[in-house]
Amino acid sequence: MAIKVEHELHKRRLGRNVGLGLVLVGFVALVFGLTVVKVERGDLSATPPSAEGGN
């Protein structure tokens, strides 16, 4: 007997996969956003801003 694609099980799996996909996309967007903010603020700089001879 062939597996029926429209089985309730497949709907549940689809829902889970779409949900996980959206979470992963959201996580990537969040990490990207954090990186942009941290680079702009100089948080990721190896040398502290005060030691660079600026103000």
Partner: peptide, 19 residues
């Protein structure tokens, strides 16, 4: 098999939804 999938779906274990 289709039967085993049906059994698993009835038991509910192993294929939880996102919710």
């Amino acid at each position: 098999t289709d039967t085993s999938i049906n059994n698993q779906a009835r038991a509910g274990a192993g294929d939880a939804g996102f919710g």
